[in-house]
Amino acid sequence: MAGMHKADLFDRKVRLHIYRHFIRTGRAPSHAETARAVSRPTREVRAAYRRLARRHTIVLQEGTDEILRAAPFWALPTRFHVEVGRRFYWGSCIWDALGIPILLGKNARIVTGCGCCDRAMVLEVHNGAIKNPHGVVHIAVAARHWYDNVVFT
């Protein structure tokens, strides 16, 4: 911690709160919720969100300072529905959907659909591995362009 800038320490605290909130509720915390949790004014939290977004740690919803993505979690419904016990989450893609049980260290059931034929697909993640690893994954956008438009990516 020595030598860390005060803003960096605050951003770290805010980042961890965002993840804890996603894990507990399945949704992103608003500025007000984060401000209450870290006992700081909303304007400071908004500034922290913007700094985290500039570093691609989170993605904000266009035209707002509200969270769209704290990878692997996505704040809005997607076609990558991840069930973990009695909770559920959304990932923005299969990479992130698989990342949710990894991040949580838990088993999960991922309900999605084939990007080609649109048939329903269910993947089970058990002890960090896919139980039924049949199928392939299509990544459309080259790595150097992932953040040109992260929603499309």
Binding site: W95, L98, G99, L123, G128, H134, V136, H138, I139, A142
Partner: peptide, 14 residues
């Protein structure tokens, strides 16, 4: 088409 990878590789990325 971009890249096509296996589910195991995708799990490795995750």
């Amino acid at each position: 088409p971009g890249a096509v990878i296996s589910l195991e590789q995708t799990m490795g990325l995750a």
